[in-house]
Simulated assay, not measured.
Amino acid sequence: MEQGDRTIDSRDLAACFRLRHHNVLAKVDRVLQQCPAAASHIIFQKYPVKAGIGGTRYTRHAVIDAKGFMLIAMTLPSTQRELALNLLLRLLEDENT
């Protein structure tokens, strides 16, 4: 992934596809396990989450470029493919402008 590439956050993907975030991360992990070359298109970061009695824990999320998203979209059910393709087209259009 290069500076200036259009990306999408795994948390936004979860909201868009009405999935739980940990399920999206499981799909990302599966893609990386099956296709290690995809690692250059997916970057994991940590963000703080409130936990328990005033505590903070850190959990991960993925920042994914258009090529990485194409691989993840292949794991989505057929009922969500149209939404995935439309999102991918928007990512690609934004990259080219």
Score class of each variant (00 low, 15 high):
Thr79Gly: 00
Leu25Cys: 03
Val31Gln: 06
Lys46Ser: 10
Ile42Met: 02
Ser78Gln: 07
Gly54His: 07
Pro77Asp: 13
Gln45Asn: 10
Gly54Lys: 02
Tyr47Leu: 00
Leu83Cys: 08
His41Phe: 05
Arg30Val: 13
Ile64His: 00
Glu82Thr: 08
Thr59Tyr: 14
Ala73Leu: 02
Leu83Ile: 09
Leu71Asp: 04
Val28Thr: 09
Gln33Phe: 15
His21Met: 06
Gln45His: 14
Thr59Leu: 14
Thr59Trp: 14
Asn23Phe: 10
Pro36Gln: 05
His21Trp: 08
Thr56Ile: 13
Thr56Ser: 10
Thr79Trp: 03
Val28Ser: 08
Gln80Trp: 00
Lys67Cys: 06
Leu25Ala: 05
Val24Pro: 02
Arg81Trp: 02
Ile43Gly: 10
Gly52Phe: 04
Thr59Cys: 13
His21Val: 03
Ser78Cys: 00
Met74Val: 02
Gly68Leu: 09
Tyr47Lys: 03
Ala39Val: 09
Val63Glu: 07
Ile42Cys: 00
Lys67Ser: 08
Arg60Val: 11
Asp65Asn: 03
Ile72Arg: 01
Asp29Asn: 07
Arg30Cys: 13
Cys16Glu: 11
Ser40Ile: 10
Pro36Trp: 13
Gln34Arg: 15
Ile72Tyr: 04
Arg30Gln: 15
Arg57His: 11
Leu19His: 12
Arg20Ser: 09
Pro36Asn: 08
Cys16Gln: 11
Tyr58Thr: 11
Pro77Leu: 09
Ala39His: 11
Ala66Val: 01
Pro36Phe: 12
Gln80Tyr: 00
His41Val: 03
His41Cys: 05
Phe17Cys: 08
Ala62Lys: 00
Ser40Thr: 12
Val63Ala: 06
Val31Leu: 11
Gly68Tyr: 11
Ala51Ser: 07
Arg30Gly: 13
Asn23Cys: 11
Lys67Asp: 10
Asn23Gln: 14
Ile72Gln: 03
